[in-house]
Design a protein around this nucleic acid. Structure first.
Lengths: 155, 155
DNA sequence: GGCTTACTACTCGGATACTGCTTGTCCGAGTTCAGGGGG
DNA sequence: CCCCCTGAACTCGGACAAGCAGTATCCGAGTAGTAAGCC
Protein backbone atom coordinates (compact mmCIF):
# COMPACT_ATOMS: atom_id res chain seq x y z
CA UNK A 1 0.00 0.00 0.00
CA UNK A 2 2.34 2.68 -1.26
CA UNK A 3 1.22 6.01 -2.61
CA UNK A 4 2.09 6.70 -6.25
CA UNK A 5 5.18 8.77 -6.92
CA UNK A 6 2.93 11.03 -8.94
CA UNK A 7 1.75 12.68 -5.74
CA UNK A 8 5.26 13.81 -4.86
CA UNK A 9 5.85 15.00 -8.41
CA UNK A 10 2.57 16.89 -8.48
CA UNK A 11 3.21 18.63 -5.17
CA UNK A 12 6.68 19.84 -6.08
CA UNK A 13 5.51 20.88 -9.54
CA UNK A 14 2.63 22.91 -8.13
CA UNK A 15 5.00 24.64 -5.75
CA UNK A 16 7.44 25.37 -8.55
CA UNK A 17 4.70 26.84 -10.72
CA UNK A 18 3.68 29.13 -7.89
CA UNK A 19 7.23 30.35 -7.37
CA UNK A 20 7.51 31.26 -11.04
CA UNK A 21 4.44 33.47 -11.25
CA UNK A 22 1.59 33.17 -13.71
CA UNK A 23 2.87 32.14 -17.14
CA UNK A 24 2.33 28.59 -18.41
CA UNK A 25 5.28 26.21 -18.30
CA UNK A 26 5.58 23.10 -20.43
CA UNK A 27 5.81 19.64 -18.94
CA UNK A 28 9.22 19.19 -20.50
CA UNK A 29 10.81 21.96 -18.50
CA UNK A 30 8.90 21.05 -15.36
CA UNK A 31 10.22 17.51 -15.67
CA UNK A 32 13.77 18.65 -16.31
CA UNK A 33 13.63 20.66 -13.10
CA UNK A 34 13.62 17.45 -11.06
CA UNK A 35 14.95 14.93 -13.62
CA UNK A 36 11.59 13.23 -14.08
CA UNK A 37 10.30 11.38 -17.17
CA UNK A 38 8.55 14.15 -19.07
CA UNK A 39 5.72 12.19 -20.66
CA UNK A 40 4.83 10.49 -17.45
CA UNK A 41 4.82 13.75 -15.52
CA UNK A 42 2.55 15.08 -18.24
CA UNK A 43 0.17 12.24 -17.54
CA UNK A 44 0.04 13.13 -13.85
CA UNK A 45 -0.50 16.81 -14.59
CA UNK A 46 -3.46 15.86 -16.76
CA UNK A 47 -5.06 14.46 -13.63
CA UNK A 48 -4.56 17.80 -11.93
CA UNK A 49 -6.19 19.55 -14.90
CA UNK A 50 -9.24 17.31 -14.70
CA UNK A 51 -9.44 18.00 -10.98
CA UNK A 52 -9.41 21.73 -11.65
CA UNK A 53 -6.09 22.43 -9.94
CA UNK A 54 -4.24 23.29 -13.14
CA UNK A 55 -5.12 24.87 -16.47
CA UNK A 56 -3.48 23.55 -19.60
CA UNK A 57 -2.59 25.79 -22.54
CA UNK A 58 -1.96 24.03 -25.86
CA UNK A 59 0.40 25.06 -28.59
CA UNK A 60 3.86 26.64 -28.54
CA UNK A 61 4.46 28.85 -25.51
CA UNK A 62 1.78 26.70 -23.87
CA UNK A 63 2.02 24.45 -20.85
CA UNK A 64 0.41 24.36 -17.42
CA UNK A 65 -0.41 27.13 -15.02
CA UNK A 66 -2.13 27.22 -11.65
CA UNK A 67 -5.91 27.44 -11.77
CA UNK A 68 -6.15 29.19 -8.41
CA UNK A 69 -3.97 30.42 -5.55
CA UNK A 70 -2.12 27.76 -3.57
CA UNK A 71 -4.01 28.82 -0.45
CA UNK A 72 -7.13 27.32 -2.00
CA UNK A 73 -5.53 23.95 -2.73
CA UNK A 74 -5.15 21.42 0.05
CA UNK A 75 -3.02 18.31 0.19
CA UNK A 76 -6.22 16.30 -0.02
CA UNK A 77 -7.06 17.90 -3.35
CA UNK A 78 -3.73 16.83 -4.79
CA UNK A 79 -3.78 13.32 -3.36
CA UNK A 80 -7.30 12.64 -4.56
CA UNK A 81 -6.57 14.14 -7.97
CA UNK A 82 -3.75 11.66 -8.48
CA UNK A 83 -4.87 8.64 -6.50
CA UNK A 84 -8.63 8.95 -6.80
CA UNK A 85 -11.01 9.27 -3.91
CA UNK A 86 -11.40 5.58 -3.14
CA UNK A 87 -11.15 4.55 0.50
CA UNK A 88 -7.87 3.11 1.75
CA UNK A 89 -9.80 0.14 3.15
CA UNK A 90 -12.39 -1.37 0.89
CA UNK A 91 -14.91 -3.57 2.64
CA UNK A 92 -15.85 -6.55 0.50
CA UNK A 93 -18.52 -7.70 2.95
CA UNK A 94 -16.99 -11.07 3.60
CA UNK A 95 -19.17 -11.22 6.69
CA UNK A 96 -22.00 -12.16 4.33
CA UNK A 97 -20.06 -14.96 2.64
CA UNK A 98 -19.16 -18.48 3.59
CA UNK A 99 -20.67 -20.61 6.32
CA UNK A 100 -20.96 -17.70 8.72
CA UNK A 101 -22.66 -15.55 6.14
CA UNK A 102 -25.19 -18.25 5.44
CA UNK A 103 -26.04 -18.63 9.11
CA UNK A 104 -26.70 -14.93 9.69
CA UNK A 105 -29.65 -12.97 8.32
CA UNK A 106 -28.92 -10.13 5.91
CA UNK A 107 -27.35 -7.50 8.16
CA UNK A 108 -29.20 -4.22 8.50
CA UNK A 109 -26.34 -2.27 10.08
CA UNK A 110 -23.02 -1.33 8.50
CA UNK A 111 -20.02 -3.58 9.05
CA UNK A 112 -18.30 -2.62 12.31
CA UNK A 113 -14.88 -3.34 10.83
CA UNK A 114 -15.62 -1.08 7.90
CA UNK A 115 -16.76 1.75 10.16
CA UNK A 116 -13.66 1.51 12.34
CA UNK A 117 -11.35 1.64 9.35
CA UNK A 118 -13.31 4.54 7.89
CA UNK A 119 -12.79 6.52 11.07
CA UNK A 120 -9.05 6.27 10.57
CA UNK A 121 -9.47 7.08 6.90
CA UNK A 122 -11.45 10.19 7.80
CA UNK A 123 -8.73 11.29 10.22
CA UNK A 124 -6.17 10.96 7.46
CA UNK A 125 -8.19 12.95 4.94
CA UNK A 126 -8.97 15.58 7.52
CA UNK A 127 -5.28 16.01 8.27
CA UNK A 128 -4.60 16.32 4.56
CA UNK A 129 -7.35 18.86 4.14
CA UNK A 130 -6.06 20.95 7.04
CA UNK A 131 -2.84 21.75 5.17
CA UNK A 132 -2.77 23.94 2.09
CA UNK A 133 0.03 24.21 -0.41
CA UNK A 134 0.43 27.83 0.67
CA UNK A 135 1.47 26.55 4.10
CA UNK A 136 4.20 24.46 2.51
CA UNK A 137 5.22 27.34 0.27
CA UNK A 138 5.61 29.48 3.38
CA UNK A 139 7.78 26.79 4.94
CA UNK A 140 9.98 26.67 1.86
CA UNK A 141 10.41 30.44 1.79
CA UNK A 142 12.33 30.20 5.05
CA UNK A 143 15.26 29.19 2.86
CA UNK A 144 15.21 31.81 0.08
CA UNK A 145 17.79 30.18 -2.15
CA UNK A 146 15.22 27.57 -3.10
CA UNK A 147 13.02 30.16 -4.78
CA UNK A 148 16.03 31.67 -6.48
CA UNK A 149 17.06 28.28 -7.82
CA UNK A 150 13.58 27.59 -9.15
CA UNK A 151 13.42 30.93 -10.97
CA UNK A 152 16.92 30.44 -12.26
CA UNK A 153 16.18 26.95 -13.56
CA UNK A 154 12.74 27.59 -15.05
CA UNK A 155 12.29 31.32 -15.38
CA UNK B 1 -3.35 3.03 -3.34
CA UNK B 2 -5.65 0.31 -2.10
CA UNK B 3 -5.09 -1.67 1.07
CA UNK B 4 -4.62 -5.39 0.65
CA UNK B 5 -7.67 -7.59 1.18
CA UNK B 6 -5.59 -9.47 3.73
CA UNK B 7 -6.29 -6.75 6.28
CA UNK B 8 -10.03 -7.35 6.10
CA UNK B 9 -9.51 -11.09 6.25
CA UNK B 10 -7.19 -10.80 9.22
CA UNK B 11 -9.55 -8.56 11.17
CA UNK B 12 -12.57 -10.79 10.73
CA UNK B 13 -10.51 -13.89 11.47
CA UNK B 14 -9.14 -12.42 14.68
CA UNK B 15 -12.66 -11.53 15.79
CA UNK B 16 -13.90 -15.00 14.95
CA UNK B 17 -11.10 -16.61 16.92
CA UNK B 18 -11.99 -14.51 19.94
CA UNK B 19 -15.66 -15.48 19.76
CA UNK B 20 -14.73 -19.15 19.77
CA UNK B 21 -12.60 -19.15 22.90
CA UNK B 22 -9.07 -20.41 23.26
CA UNK B 23 -8.57 -23.53 21.18
CA UNK B 24 -6.56 -23.38 17.95
CA UNK B 25 -8.50 -23.41 14.67
CA UNK B 26 -7.00 -24.42 11.34
CA UNK B 27 -6.77 -22.03 8.43
CA UNK B 28 -9.02 -24.31 6.40
CA UNK B 29 -11.99 -23.86 8.66
CA UNK B 30 -11.27 -20.16 9.19
CA UNK B 31 -11.27 -19.71 5.42
CA UNK B 32 -14.45 -21.70 4.95
CA UNK B 33 -16.16 -19.40 7.43
CA UNK B 34 -15.99 -16.52 4.93
CA UNK B 35 -15.43 -18.43 1.65
CA UNK B 36 -11.82 -17.32 1.34
CA UNK B 37 -8.95 -19.14 -0.42
CA UNK B 38 -7.50 -21.22 2.40
CA UNK B 39 -3.84 -21.21 1.43
CA UNK B 40 -3.79 -17.50 0.87
CA UNK B 41 -5.50 -16.80 4.16
CA UNK B 42 -2.85 -19.01 5.74
CA UNK B 43 -0.19 -16.76 4.24
CA UNK B 44 -1.77 -13.69 5.79
CA UNK B 45 -2.11 -15.36 9.18
CA UNK B 46 1.60 -16.14 9.06
CA UNK B 47 2.19 -12.40 9.01
CA UNK B 48 0.11 -12.11 12.16
CA UNK B 49 2.17 -14.84 13.79
CA UNK B 50 5.42 -13.06 12.99
CA UNK B 51 3.95 -9.87 14.41
CA UNK B 52 3.08 -11.68 17.63
CA UNK B 53 -0.69 -11.34 17.30
CA UNK B 54 -1.31 -15.03 16.75
CA UNK B 55 0.28 -18.28 17.88
CA UNK B 56 0.46 -21.16 15.45
CA UNK B 57 0.16 -24.77 16.56
CA UNK B 58 1.42 -27.40 14.11
CA UNK B 59 0.11 -30.88 13.60
CA UNK B 60 -3.39 -32.34 13.72
CA UNK B 61 -5.77 -30.47 16.03
CA UNK B 62 -3.44 -27.55 15.45
CA UNK B 63 -4.13 -24.18 13.90
CA UNK B 64 -4.03 -20.58 15.06
CA UNK B 65 -5.06 -19.07 18.36
CA UNK B 66 -4.89 -15.56 19.76
CA UNK B 67 -1.60 -14.64 21.40
CA UNK B 68 -3.23 -12.10 23.72
CA UNK B 69 -6.61 -10.56 24.52
CA UNK B 70 -8.20 -8.47 21.80
CA UNK B 71 -8.10 -5.45 24.08
CA UNK B 72 -4.33 -5.44 23.64
CA UNK B 73 -4.44 -5.50 19.83
CA UNK B 74 -5.10 -2.29 17.93
CA UNK B 75 -6.10 -1.80 14.34
CA UNK B 76 -2.65 -0.41 13.74
CA UNK B 77 -1.08 -3.67 14.88
CA UNK B 78 -3.10 -5.61 12.34
CA UNK B 79 -2.60 -3.18 9.47
CA UNK B 80 1.15 -3.01 10.01
CA UNK B 81 1.40 -6.77 10.42
CA UNK B 82 -0.14 -7.26 6.97
CA UNK B 83 0.95 -4.18 5.08
CA UNK B 84 4.25 -3.46 6.76
CA UNK B 85 5.11 -0.24 8.55
CA UNK B 86 6.21 1.76 5.52
CA UNK B 87 4.88 5.28 5.21
CA UNK B 88 1.96 5.90 2.87
CA UNK B 89 3.98 8.69 1.23
CA UNK B 90 7.57 7.91 0.43
CA UNK B 91 9.72 10.93 -0.22
CA UNK B 92 12.26 10.22 -2.95
CA UNK B 93 13.99 13.58 -2.48
CA UNK B 94 13.38 14.78 -6.00
CA UNK B 95 14.12 18.27 -4.68
CA UNK B 96 17.79 17.28 -4.88
CA UNK B 97 17.57 16.07 -8.48
CA UNK B 98 17.45 17.80 -11.82
CA UNK B 99 18.35 21.36 -12.64
CA UNK B 100 16.82 22.71 -9.45
CA UNK B 101 18.66 20.19 -7.34
CA UNK B 102 21.94 21.16 -8.91
CA UNK B 103 21.35 24.84 -8.22
CA UNK B 104 20.61 24.38 -4.52
CA UNK B 105 23.15 23.39 -1.87
CA UNK B 106 22.61 20.10 -0.07
CA UNK B 107 19.60 20.84 2.14
CA UNK B 108 20.11 20.62 5.86
CA UNK B 109 16.44 20.58 6.81
CA UNK B 110 13.88 17.88 6.07
CA UNK B 111 11.70 18.21 2.98
CA UNK B 112 8.64 20.33 3.80
CA UNK B 113 6.45 18.22 1.54
CA UNK B 114 7.59 15.09 3.30
CA UNK B 115 6.86 16.54 6.71
CA UNK B 116 3.39 17.66 5.72
CA UNK B 117 2.49 14.24 4.37
CA UNK B 118 3.91 12.59 7.46
CA UNK B 119 1.63 14.66 9.66
CA UNK B 120 -1.37 13.18 7.87
CA UNK B 121 0.21 9.75 8.05
CA UNK B 122 0.64 10.13 11.79
CA UNK B 123 -2.99 11.16 12.20
CA UNK B 124 -4.04 8.01 10.36
CA UNK B 125 -1.88 5.71 12.46
CA UNK B 126 -2.99 7.42 15.64
CA UNK B 127 -6.62 6.87 14.73
CA UNK B 128 -5.85 3.23 14.01
CA UNK B 129 -4.05 2.85 17.30
CA UNK B 130 -6.92 4.41 19.24
CA UNK B 131 -9.22 1.53 18.33
CA UNK B 132 -8.73 -1.96 19.68
CA UNK B 133 -10.27 -5.13 18.36
CA UNK B 134 -12.11 -5.42 21.68
CA UNK B 135 -13.98 -2.25 20.78
CA UNK B 136 -15.12 -3.81 17.52
CA UNK B 137 -15.99 -7.03 19.27
CA UNK B 138 -18.17 -5.04 21.64
CA UNK B 139 -19.88 -3.43 18.68
CA UNK B 140 -20.56 -6.81 17.13
CA UNK B 141 -22.02 -8.18 20.34
CA UNK B 142 -24.90 -5.74 19.99
CA UNK B 143 -26.31 -8.27 17.53
CA UNK B 144 -25.95 -11.58 19.39
CA UNK B 145 -26.86 -13.84 16.46
CA UNK B 146 -23.47 -13.08 14.94
CA UNK B 147 -21.66 -14.77 17.80
CA UNK B 148 -24.07 -17.69 17.67
CA UNK B 149 -23.45 -18.10 13.96
CA UNK B 150 -19.68 -18.06 14.45
CA UNK B 151 -19.81 -20.70 17.15
CA UNK B 152 -22.22 -22.75 15.10
CA UNK B 153 -20.05 -22.58 11.99
CA UNK B 154 -16.67 -23.11 13.62
CA UNK B 155 -17.24 -24.47 17.11
C1' DG C 1 -3.51 -56.34 29.75
C1' DG C 2 -0.10 -52.61 29.29
C1' DC C 3 3.65 -50.49 26.87
C1' DT C 4 6.28 -49.39 22.86
C1' DT C 5 6.58 -48.39 18.14
C1' DA C 6 5.51 -47.52 13.49
C1' DC C 7 2.12 -45.39 10.58
C1' DT C 8 -1.29 -42.25 8.98
C1' DA C 9 -3.58 -38.04 8.61
C1' DC C 10 -3.61 -33.38 9.30
C1' DT C 11 -1.44 -28.93 10.24
C1' DC C 12 1.68 -24.95 9.24
C1' DG C 13 5.39 -22.91 6.31
C1' DG C 14 7.66 -21.50 2.44
C1' DA C 15 8.70 -21.96 -2.60
C1' DT C 16 6.43 -21.45 -7.05
C1' DA C 17 3.11 -19.46 -11.04
C1' DC C 18 -0.37 -15.90 -12.39
C1' DT C 19 -2.91 -11.37 -12.65
C1' DG C 20 -3.73 -6.56 -12.41
C1' DC C 21 -1.95 -2.06 -11.58
C1' DT C 22 1.63 1.28 -11.49
C1' DT C 23 5.08 2.96 -14.35
C1' DG C 24 7.02 4.33 -18.63
C1' DT C 25 6.95 5.39 -23.76
C1' DC C 26 5.19 6.77 -28.15
C1' DC C 27 2.48 9.03 -31.67
C1' DG C 28 -1.42 12.09 -33.20
C1' DA C 29 -4.54 16.55 -32.79
C1' DG C 30 -4.42 21.27 -32.14
C1' DT C 31 -2.44 25.87 -31.78
C1' DT C 32 0.77 29.65 -32.08
C1' DC C 33 4.38 31.89 -34.37
C1' DA C 34 7.19 33.15 -38.30
C1' DG C 35 8.08 34.00 -42.95
C1' DG C 36 6.83 34.77 -47.61
C1' DG C 37 3.74 36.47 -51.09
C1' DG C 38 0.19 39.51 -52.67
C1' DG C 39 -2.48 43.83 -52.56
C1' DC D 1 4.18 49.43 -46.45
C1' DC D 2 0.46 46.47 -44.63
C1' DC D 3 -2.31 42.34 -44.71
C1' DC D 4 -3.18 37.52 -45.61
C1' DC D 5 -1.87 32.89 -46.11
C1' DT D 6 0.85 28.85 -45.70
C1' DG D 7 4.02 26.10 -43.31
C1' DA D 8 6.61 24.48 -39.43
C1' DA D 9 7.54 23.73 -34.71
C1' DC D 10 6.01 23.00 -30.28
C1' DT D 11 2.47 21.82 -26.92
C1' DC D 12 -1.02 18.79 -24.69
C1' DG D 13 -3.74 14.47 -24.84
C1' DG D 14 -4.61 9.88 -25.11
C1' DA D 15 -3.33 5.15 -26.86
C1' DC D 16 0.19 1.52 -26.46
C1' DA D 17 4.03 -1.69 -23.92
C1' DA D 18 7.10 -3.18 -19.70
C1' DG D 19 8.00 -4.10 -14.71
C1' DC D 20 6.52 -5.13 -10.29
C1' DA D 21 3.72 -5.91 -6.29
C1' DG D 22 -0.38 -8.33 -4.87
C1' DT D 23 -2.85 -12.68 -5.58
C1' DA D 24 -3.40 -17.44 -5.77
C1' DT D 25 -1.71 -22.21 -5.65
C1' DC D 26 1.02 -26.23 -4.60
C1' DC D 27 4.10 -29.26 -2.20
C1' DG D 28 7.25 -30.44 1.70
C1' DA D 29 8.47 -30.57 6.97
C1' DG D 30 6.76 -31.66 11.24
C1' DT D 31 3.56 -33.44 14.81
C1' DA D 32 -0.42 -35.56 17.29
C1' DG D 33 -3.23 -39.32 17.34
C1' DT D 34 -4.05 -44.27 16.33
C1' DA D 35 -3.55 -48.92 15.77
C1' DA D 36 -0.86 -52.88 15.69
C1' DG D 37 2.74 -55.71 17.68
C1' DC D 38 5.50 -57.23 21.59
C1' DC D 39 6.49 -58.09 26.50
Amino acid sequence: MRMSNGVEWALHTLLNLDMLGGGPVGSGRLAQAHALPASYLNKQLQHLVRAGLLVSVPGPRGGFRLARPLADTTLRDVVEAIEGDARLFQCTEIRCCGSIGELTPRPTTACAVKLAMQRADDAWRQALEAQTLADIREELDRTPHIGRAVRSALG
